[in-house]
């Protein structure tokens, strides 16, 4: 599903040029659960941003389901992103002014899903995440674990093929953390590819494979579990997206 080769990213201030990603290469198969680990500043978040099509690499190749996306403009990236990728953040990133329901509904609005269907799908996912009873509350009224469940619900409501999680348990206590990891595992078992950045060895153990990074490079790879690939095509608005269409 994902294949990056010699990926590079720099951050330049007036005086210093920092290398965030230094010719990084690896690939992730559809349905795989990969954890990315490494000390602060090793380039994990930068990697996640590029994989999430939020940011552009400065060099190298990024194949997303056999399509080279590194040269994509903002509009094309956004199009691909909103149909295929869900995000879970450490700080939840829920919009304070919107209710639980409205937060989860947002991705569906942006992909143009009709109102009745939106309600159905949001309710279904809230049910699944067991926060249906909180649907009219605002994020500030929920506990951390509940907030992250809302964030996960929002990430999966569009049935993305790939979920990118940036330290999803970083702001949670261990029981809430385990619960969120459980949710992610369930999603993965149902076929969603997950790439998760984490500091926690405990969380990393939920994955099939751990990629360890240092100074923008891959240092080691530990395979924790067997994984059998079952390729599924990328989709857009329910239809199948072929490489030709995206270009």
């Amino acid at each position: 599903m994902i294949k990056i080769t010699d990926l590079e990213k720099y951050y330049a201030t007036e005086e210093v040029r920092t290398i965030a990603l230094n010719k990084l290469s690896f690939s992730v198969k559809t349905g795989e659960f990969v954890a990315v680990m490494g000390p602060s500043g090793c380039g994990k978040s930068t990697l996640l941003n590029i994989l999430g099509l939020l940011d552009d690499p400065d060099g190298g190749s990024f194949m997303f389901n056999d399509i080279e996306v590194s040269g994509f403009n903002e509009r094309k990236r956004a199009e691909l992103r909103k149909h295929n990728i869900g995000f879970v953040f450490q700080s939840f990133n829920l919009i304070d002014e919107l209710t639980v329901f409205e937060n989860v509904e947002l991705p569906l609005i942006y992909t143009g899903v009709k109102s009745a269907e939106r309600k159905e799908r949001v309710d279904a996912v809230l049910e699944k995440m067991q926060i249906m009873h909180r649907r009219k509350h605002f994020p500030q009224q929920l506990s951390g674990g509940q907030q992250q469940r809302v964030a996960v619900a929002r990430a999966v409501v569009n049935n993305p093929k790939l979920i990118l999680a940036d330290e999803p348990t970083g702001n949670l206590d261990s029981s809430n953390g385990n619960e969120v990891m459980g949710l992610l595992t369930e999603l993965n078992e149902a076929g969603t590819t997950i790439i998760m950045v984490t500091h926690s060895e405990h969380d990393a153990k939920y994955s099939h494979r751990i990629i360890r990074m240092l100074d923008g490079q891959k240092v080691t790879e530990n395979i924790l579990a067997d994984f059998k690939s079952s390729e599924r095509p990328l989709t857009t608005e329910g239809g199948t997206l072929t490489p030709a269409e995206v270009k």
Binding site: R81, N93, L106
Partner: peptide, 16 residues
């Protein structure tokens, strides 16, 4: 800013 960022990540276009 943050809200705008979240919305964009979730697929909001510049026009929206």
């Amino acid at each position: 800013q943050k809200e705008i960022g979240i919305r964009k990540v979730l697929g909001a276009s510049i026009t929206q």
